[in-house]
């Protein structure tokens, strides 16, 4: 589905060049659930940003479904994200002025495919059928993250990216959220790449890639 070769992301700083990514080769197949693990500063978030076309690599090639992913062109990168990528954040980042249902509908509107029936089905899928008219501040953190998952898959992305998506949740809620994520992605046939510190989440992945100092240390499938 996606293929990165020799990806480098270097930052010119006053103190010298920081090599956040220093030659990453990564292929992801459709349907995989990839977990990026590594300590702080290992480059996993930078890699996620490059995958999402939020950031442009300094070197290397990046193809998605055989097509080069745009770089250094803000609106083309935005279009790529809109058409291809779903994103779940650590802090949920729901729009506080919109209800649960409206948060999901908003993303459909942006993608130009409004389908309220599907939005409601997704909310049922993540177990929020009773919360659809509530505002984000009126539901729990775990519920908010489930809305974020429903929101991110509402426009049928090919690739769902999660950055420390259980980082703000307790372990029990994290489990629930991850179960919902897996269920939803399997139901929708969405490929997933998640960044985390939490080794315990490996059980929800089909493959674990470990990074350090901008390089891949290991890349192993997960036996479930």
């Amino acid at each position: 589905m996606m293929e990165m070769t020799g990806i480098k992301r270097h930052y010119e700083m006053a103190s010298g060049v920081v090599k956040a990514l220093d030659g990453i080769d990564l292929q992801v197949k459709a349907g995989e659930r990839l977990l990026l693990l590594g300590p702080s500063g290992s480059g996993k978030t930078t890699l996620l940003n490059c995958i999402a076309a939020l950031d442009s690599p300094t070197e290397g090639t990046y193809f998605f479904e055989g097509n080069p992913v745009p770089r250094n062109a803000a609106e083309q990168m935005t279009t790529f994200r809109r058409d291809t990528i779903g994103f779940v954040f650590q802090n949920f980042n729901l729009l506080q002025d919109l209800t649960v249902l409206e948060n999901v509908l908003l993303i459909q509107e942006i993608a130009g495919v409004i389908d309220e029936k599907r939005a409601r089905e997704l909310l049922i899928l993540v177990g929020l059928e009773n919360e659809i008219d509530r505002f984000p501040a009126e539901i729990s953190g775990g519920q908010q993250q489930r809305v974020a998952i429903a929101r991110s898959i509402a426009k049928k992305p090919k690739l769902l990216l999660g950055d420390e998506l259980t980082g703000s949740l307790d372990s029990k809620t994290s489990e629930t959220v991850m179960e919902v994520l897996v269920k939803a992605c399997e139901a929708e046939n969405i490929t997933t790449v998640m960044v985390t510190h939490d080794e315990s989440l490996a059980k929800y992945a089909t493959r674990v890639v470990r990074l350090d100092s901008g390089l891949i240390l290991s890349d192993n499938p997960v036996e479930n």
């Binding site: 999402a52 939020l54 609106e75 935005t78 279009t79 790529f80 994200r81 809109r82 058409d83 990528i85 779903g86 994103f87 954040f89 980042n93 729009l95 908003l106 993303i107 942006i110 993608a111 929101r151 991110s152 426009k155």
Partner: peptide, 8 residues
């Protein structure tokens, strides 16, 4: 958030 989610 909207921009990251692909809002042009």
């Amino acid at each position: 958030t909207l921009r990251v989610l692909g809002a042009p």
